[in-house]
Amino acid sequence: MAERTVQVNLRAGLQARPAAQFVQEANRFSSDVFLDKDGKSVNAKSIMGVMSLVIPKGATVTLRATGSDAEQAVERLAVLVGSEE
């Protein structure tokens, strides 16, 4: 189990296109990955789930993963949402 809380720095937040990119990245890992915001948790591999959280730039989210590559998954996704592009 890996967990990390990060701030979203993507210029436009997790809008549709960045959200799709995020989900695609999450799907590369075999671990179960979850994204939490304001007490709501969604599967990070589901595009509709991720978009339903409405995550703007500056929001604080928590990434959680369980599985063999949990550490890498959290690390990679944290970098993705933490970057400005």
């Binding site: 436009a12 937040g13 809008q15 549709a16 296109r17 959200a19 978009m51 409405v54 995550i55 703007p56 929001a59």
Partner: peptide
């Protein structure tokens, strides 16, 4: 449908801000 969802998402982000 995809565009409408994307626009809705953008406007709810603005509303949050």
């Amino acid at each position: 449908a995809a565009r409408e969802l994307s626009e809705k998402l953008m406007s709810s982000m603005d509303a949050h801000e």
